[in-house]
Simulated assay, not measured.
Amino acid sequence: MQKQVLIPTDYSKSAFNAIVYAFELFAEEDCTFHIFHSYFLARSAKGNVLFPEPEPADYDRAARLSGERMEWLKKKVGLLADNPKHTIYFDHKFGTLIELLEEKVMRDKIDLIVMGTRGITDDTKVAYGRNSVNVMENIRGCAVLAVPANVSYKKIGSIVFPTNFKTHFNKREMKTFVKIAQLGNSEIQILHIGKEKDLSERQRNNRKELENHFSEVKYTYHWLEHKGVKEGVLSFADQQNSGMIAFVNRKHWFFGSVFSNPLVKSLGVHSKVPILALHDTRN
């Protein structure tokens, strides 16, 4: 069965790099890629009393500009899209990014979203742009892979997977995670901040469930004591020269607390490591 991969684009360098990365990541897999752009007029937001409602000509102009840029992107992608295993669709639509992505995830049965970490503004002072943060936090129907603009695909030696063994694992997304690990014959490094002997019965049961998910890939356990979660995860990934960090995003817990931390920038982790966000089944 073909993988369905959604790649949002704002026509930036970072977004194009995410397209290239996705093509190379799934080079040996039968995949359908949905390259998608959403465009929006801020004045069209309901309840915005500061600006008048746009005229029909404004919507027409926005649609025309979006169409022209999409045609330009098609030509650019066409120069590198020569894989017979890949089917590529292009689409653009008026509306807000999160609502449209949720709609496409449901309608097209998307397995994975791949996107750049920073958008067209490319603010080097922030590790992740607003759109990538919003997608990771709010799209709950599939896994999300955020790829830094200067990262080229290479086989991933190891993937750090921090966990407190308290989350509920989404089977469909865990299959996607395992597939990514298998593509590069990657070792999954399960990282827990704390002592193994301190695990509760519930945590031990969740650990067994995790081992079942990882039965077809290489995995190792790593235990860090006397470390905070933020410092432990990021310093471990840096020391191990990891090719990716994957985590279960219990809503507004991991991503917001760790990857908004100044330590991300100081370690440079955000500039060289793709981040795979998975979801707790309770969210």
Rank of each mutant, 00 (worst) to 15 (best):
L276K: 02
N138V: 03
V160F: 07
P56Y: 10
N150Y: 01
R64T: 15
L183H: 04
E103N: 11
N131R: 01
I188L: 06
G47R: 13
F33I: 14
Y221D: 11
N249D: 10
L73E: 10
F259S: 11
S186M: 04
L276T: 03
V151Y: 05
R43S: 15
N83M: 12
A62E: 14
N48S: 15
V233A: 06
K104P: 01
G184P: 02
I180Y: 10
I120K: 13
G184K: 02
E53K: 12
N185H: 13
L145W: 01
E211I: 08
M1K: 12
S38T: 15
E24C: 07
D123H: 08
K155I: 02
K218H: 08
K155F: 05
G95D: 09
D82N: 12
T167G: 02
F161K: 08
S158C: 03
M136R: 03
A149T: 02
T117A: 14
L101D: 03
A22F: 11
R43D: 15
R107E: 14
V114D: 07
H226S: 09
P148S: 03
F165N: 05
E99M: 06
E28I: 06
K227F: 12
T87S: 12
S186H: 10
H252P: 00
E68I: 14
A62S: 15
V217C: 03
T176H: 01
L224M: 10
A181W: 07
L97D: 08
E53V: 14
F26H: 01
I7G: 04
A15F: 13
L6G: 09
F214A: 09
G95E: 03
H213S: 06
K208I: 14
G268N: 03
Y221M: 13
K104Q: 12
F165E: 08
K208S: 14
S158I: 02
D122G: 08
G194M: 04
K46A: 13
T96M: 12
K227V: 00
Y89L: 15
L276S: 04
N17I: 01
S260K: 14
L112Y: 00
K93I: 11
L145P: 03
L97K: 11
N150H: 03
T32K: 14
S158L: 00
H213G: 07
A143H: 00
L50V: 09
L100H: 05
D58F: 10
S38I: 04
D238R: 04
A246R: 05
T87D: 09
S38V: 15
S257A: 09
G78W: 10
V248A: 06
L210F: 01
G243N: 07
A18M: 11
D238M: 05
P162T: 08
H252N: 15
E187A: 04
A27W: 04
G47D: 13
N170G: 06
N83R: 09
K125E: 10
Y219V: 08
S12C: 05
N185T: 05
V248Q: 01
Q182W: 03
F236S: 07
T220A: 11
H192E: 08
V151P: 00
G129F: 00
A246Y: 03
I156H: 08
D10R: 06
P262A: 07
G95I: 06
A27E: 15
L145V: 01
A15W: 07
Y39P: 12
Y153A: 01
S14E: 05
T220Q: 09
T176P: 02
L199F: 08
S14V: 06
V114F: 10
